[in-house]
Design a protein around this nucleic acid. Structure first.
Lengths: 174, 174
DNA sequence: ACGATATACCTCGGACCCGATGTATAGGTA
DNA sequence: TACCTATACATCGGGTCCGAGGTATATCGT
């Protein structure tokens, strides 16, 4: 998820680590903060894998900046991660939102629609958080008000997203 | 999140690891699967910390079961984790849902309302995923249909949850 | 002159997580 | 007979993540 965000932001324009940190904080930080001690090693990983280039520039304010840019391999890797997301990227909303935030970088509309269709299939499966044996329970069947809340919220999300997915897939010519 | 689920399920009734695994899979597994090799070490951690007791029983079908039950310290720890959730438990929906799934174990209605109020405060803060400088952007201001989708879905979730939170806090006498 | 804050990067240890793999037993099925 | 699935537990290595702490420079307020 973090690596996808790094690749996604750098696809648009080269950035140094500190600026990257601020952009990632703006994107997902209010929900899932990312520590500096997570970001810098992640940058090193991607650099070591040949996906990033580093160019040292004199710092405009303080210490020298390491301006990062995607290599050709990095651009390909971003496309690969967007076109063939991990199952977790589909099911986990945090990761899914990160995919959506950068899906425009996949310039093929059919490939974009394919990714949306995978999320659609996931949401259309009958699933709950609470079961009676194998049968998924509905909000109305629960006594616990907090568990009822979980289902109420999840259902609202699911409805909004299903509507949006179907519209968007249609508008992509899928 | 995993540890909270273990403590939460065992609060109701003793269970062996394999059954615990199935319950956790039913609760959060469709969104965020938990591997066996994550569960068993987590059980050991909690046991080592004195929160769990283990009693070996002959297996009803196959290998002998290790039936796990909460110690008094384990019950206190669950209450503590529910009453004073980590900030991440409030902001991250996956973790928040786990808190909600077991919040009924906190028998004090005022404490329950306090936890809901923390989530309410988080949702009432003006936040987005995308910004123009410091100003959070609305869905309508975005050209990118995928990013617009993120905000559309997030807004639907937020609205449903705000309504539910306010109702539930009121009904708790908060 | 002093401290706080922002910029800009980094390391270390410990905790956590996962995939792969292993060890058994029992039941079904080809 | 052979294999697959389910039950039930566990370890190992590699990787990821975070909090705490460290190193500088520049700016601003007091």
């Amino acid at each position: 998820m973090l690596e996808l965000a790094i690749l996604g932001f750098l696809y648009d324009t080269p950035l140094h680590g500190y600026e990257l940190r601020k952009r990632i904080a703006a994107l997902t930080g209010h929900v899932k903060p990312v520590a500096e001690s997570t970001l810098y090693p992640a940058i090193k990983r991607l650099e070591k894998a040949g996906l990033l280039d580093r160019a040292t520039e004199p710092g405009s304010v303080a210490a020298p900046r390491h301006v990062l840019s995607l290599t050709e391999a990095g651009r390909r890797e971003l496309h690969r991660r967007l076109a063939e997301p991990d199952p977790r990227d589909i099911s986990d909303e945090n990761r899914w939102f990160t995919v959506l935030a950068f899906l425009r970088h996949l310039d093929d509309a059919a490939a974009q629609a394919g990714v949306l269709r995978r999320r659609l299939a996931f949401l259309e499966e009958p699933a709950s958080f609470f079961y009676d044996g194998d049968r998924p329970l509905r909000a109305e069947e629960l006594d616990d008000p907090f568990r009822r809340g979980v289902l109420t919220i999840a259902r609202a999300t699911s409805r909004a997203e299903l509507t949006w997915l179907r519209e968007t897939i249609a508008s992509l010519g899928g």
